[in-house]
C-alpha cells in the first residue's frame, strides 16, 4: 500500500515536471543578449507617442518587364498599434487600402466594398514589401531570438540576431537581422522559409531621425532571392509627425476614400 501511495505521488510529481520540460522544448526562451539588441532598435524604431504620416514610393523591378511604381499613403499610430494605408498610384490601385488594428489586418477592395482579412505574409500590391514594414514592431512576441555571431555588411560591423517564429502569423518563419554596432539600427534582414531557403533580403539604406531618439527608415531595398533580378526600392517621403484625426484609423475612412 505504501509503495502504491509513493508511486502515485511520484507519478503526479513527475507529470507536471515532464510537461514543463516539453513546454520548454516547444517554446524555448530567447537569448537575453539577442533580446537586448532587438529591444534597443525597436525602442528607436517604434514611434509610440507620435502620429506619423508619410508616403511610400515603391519601384518594383523585374527582369524583362518595365518598372512598376506604387505610391502608398501611410497613417501610423504605434501607441494604438494601428495603421491605415491608402494606395494613391497607379490609378488602377486607387481606393484600395489596408487597415490594421492590433493583430487584425484588413485589405479593402473597393470593387466589392469588401474588407478582406489578411495576415503578415501579405505582399503590398504584389511588391516585395510585406505589411509588417509599416507599423509597430514587436519581434520578441512573434519570434524566439538568438545571437548568430557577427558579420560585416558594407563597411559596418554588425551583430547578427536569428529569429525563429513562435506563432503562425509572421511575415517569414526564420529571419536574420544584421544590426549595426555603431548606432544599433538594423541595416540588413534576411528572410528565410521554414526549410531555411533564403527568400528575400532587405537592406535599410538610410534612416531619418525624428524627435528624441526615434528613427524612421527613408530608403529601403528588398531583393527577391528566388526571382533573379526582381527587387523593390522603397523611398519614404513627406514624413510628418502632426496629430492624425482618430477617424483616419477606421474602416469607414478607407471606404470613404475609395468613393
Amino acid at each position: 500500500m505504501h509503495h502504491k501511495f509513493l508511486s502515485i505521488v511520484a507519478f503526479f510529481a513527475v507529470l507536471p515536471v515532464s510537461a514543463a520540460c516539453f513546454a520548454q522544448a516547444g517554446d524555448a526562451k530567447s537569448d537575453p543578449a539577442a533580446t537586448a539588441i532587438v529591444k534597443a532598435f525597436e525602442d528607436r524604431l517604434n514611434l509610440e507617442g507620435l502620429d506619423v504620416t508619410n508616403t511610400f514610393n515603391l519601384v518594383q523591378k523585374k527582369e524583362g518587364e518595365t518598372d512598376r511604381v506604387l505610391q502608398v499613403k501611410v497613417f501610423r499610430r504605434d501607441s494604438a498599434d494601428t495603421f491605415t494605408l491608402i494606395f494613391q498610384y497607379p490609378e488602377s490601385e486607387k481606393g484600395k487600402g489596408y487597415y490594421r488594428k492590433g493583430d487584425d489586418l484588413f485589405l479593402y477592395l473597393p470593387s466589392t466594398r469588401e474588407f478582406a482579412y489578411r495576415n503578415r505574409k501579405d505582399d503590398v500590391g504584389g511588391s516585395d514589401i510585406r505589411t509588417d514594414m509599416f507599423g509597430k514592431s514587436n519581434l520578441e512576441d512573434q519570434y524566439r531570438l538568438s545571437l548568430a555571431g557577427r558579420a560585416t555588411v558594407s563597411k559596418w560591423d554588425c551583430d547578427v540576431v536569428r529569429l525563429e517564429a513562435r506563432q503562425l502569423d509572421v511575415s517569414f518563419p526564420i529571419q536574420k537581422w544584421f544590426v549595426r554596432k555603431t548606432d544599433g539600427l538594423p541595416v540588413k534582414v534576411e528572410n528565410y522559409s521554414a526549410s531555411e531557403t533564403l527568400l528575400r533580403t532587405i537592406y535599410y539604406i538610410d534612416y531619418r531621425k525624428l524627435s528624441g531618439d526615434r528613427f524612421i527608415f527613408t530608403k529601403l531595398l528588398a531583393v527577391d532571392a528566388l526571382e533573379k533580378g526582381q527587387k523593390t526600392l522603397l523611398t519614404n517621403d513627406g514624413i510628418e509627425t502632426g496629430a492624425i484625426p482618430n477617424y483616419v484609423f477606421t474602416k469607414a475612412y478607407l471606404e470613404e476614400q475609395s468613393r
Binding site: 514610393n57 519601384v59 518595365t66 537592406y203 539604406i205 538610410d206 526600392l233
Partner: peptide, 22 residues
C-alpha cells in the same frame, strides 16, 4: 561587395528612373 547597395545617390537615381518611366 554590398557597399554599392548602400550608395544613397545610386539608389535615388534608380528610383528616379523608375518613377520617370511610370
Amino acid at each position: 561587395d554590398e557597399s554599392a547597395i548602400f550608395d544613397s545617390a545610386g539608389f535615388d537615381r534608380t528610383v528616379a528612373e523608375g518613377k520617370k518611366a511610370a
